[in-house]
Design a protein around this nucleic acid. Sequence first.
DNA 1: AGAAAAATTATACGATCTTATAACAAGCAG
DNA 2: CTGCTTGTTATAAGATCGTATAATTTTTCT
Lengths: 232, 232
Amino acid sequence: MMLMDDLEQARLTREGISIVTTAKTGPKTRARFRREAPEDRRRQLGEAALRCIVKHGNAGVSVRQIAAEAGVTQGLITHHFGEINELVAYAFDIMSEGILQSILKAVNEAEPTPKARLDAFIAASFSPIMMDRDVLGVWVVFWSLILHSPRMSASQRQEYGDYVRTVEGLIGDLAREEGFAVADLRLAAIAFTALMDGLWLAWCLNPDAFRPEEGVRLCNNWIEGLRRGAHG
Amino acid sequence: MMLMDDLEQARLTREGISIVTTAKTGPKTRARFRREAPEDRRRQLGEAALRCIVKHGNAGVSVRQIAAEAGVTQGLITHHFGEINELVAYAFDIMSEGILQSILKAVNEAEPTPKARLDAFIAASFSPIMMDRDVLGVWVVFWSLILHSPRMSASQRQEYGDYVRTVEGLIGDLAREEGFAVADLRLAAIAFTALMDGLWLAWCLNPDAFRPEEGVRLCNNWIEGLRRGAHG
DNA sequence: AGAAAAATTATACGATCTTATAACAAGCAG
DNA sequence: CTGCTTGTTATAAGATCGTATAATTTTTCT
């Protein structure tokens, strides 16, 4: 999962020392540990959760597996998050924010014209970082939770809103620059978002269906329809 | 889950008799049962699986829960499907086929003009039967399996192909009738499918984002773009 | 230095899950 | 009516899961 590479860090490998010393020093030695700021620990656990979900899908959402992945004991998750669902929701926030930031970075590095910025947005959305089945694997787990958990649902509403507003800005700027009209900017942004998400989903489920470049072209065609007043 | 209503049947409620009679007749009484044709039983189990997934999401995919839902014992699932994933894959086939048939029925009941048929297709895709979060709940479980199981992946490829070809036919007929050109019909169908799926997904995750009628309008706008040569 | 606070380990408990296996019963063939 | 096939129940074994609780170590603060 390429998106995660940035986030990954050298993580604490739990020392087997306690086991070795147990025989020597006595039966009551404990594993040594480093105490970390709650904020850091929470993030470590969140990233470990993402890695587990990538590797094992829904089955990866487990206190024991995530704790092992993070190199800590199970109780730590209870301590920092209370119940495991809270940890997963936190992981969802990390993931969402990471993706949006990654795309926004590409947009802001483009030339400051509306067209160039929109192109960068589309290109970033179909870059290898996004066209990754593992990312869908994670997303799918989140979706199923969103449907049942109010906490997750609230996060999703927030992230989706941010995303659509971003698209709204990009499209609005283009329309102003090129002088065409859009009847309902918010709805147009929703449609464009849906088109991109739908293409991404279809590709992840069946990468043979079309090539990413074709996805980019189809998005540009939608923009072309907007230019020609299809949403007037 | 409205789509399931058609499939639901009065199901065997397991008699507690065996427990009661145990005290009277002796310790060795067994539950009475009806023997059914493997084909029937498999379908019953498949439908029970769908009901469980609707109710409990991923957690519903469990031998015990599905067996209880179907009013049989656990061993029966092992007997008919071997491992549980095979049962879920079977449930996926039932579901996919049901949805496509449901939409095609609406299309074929419309007036035989390309425009009317396409309208019916869109309307059916945004009808209350489809705009149901429970349906996404089931689909999400399937997607996660598609990513990991070749068996499920093969089914998905087949269903997706059928779906896109249907859209291709509808759009192609309209283009011919109205006399506009489409450069790549297959790609256009993929885009339109993605737009509809993306809107459906967004709505299911967050029903407050837009109304189904607005979804229909956004689809029509896309068609309007096609008319105006955005995909030429 | 020493005590208080907070992070972390360690462990246990009860529930649920998957799979395997043996016993039983329903329906069909003769 | 009898016996065979197999759908079905019943039960057990072993793994894993979530959460609670107590003991211990690290860090901080005075």
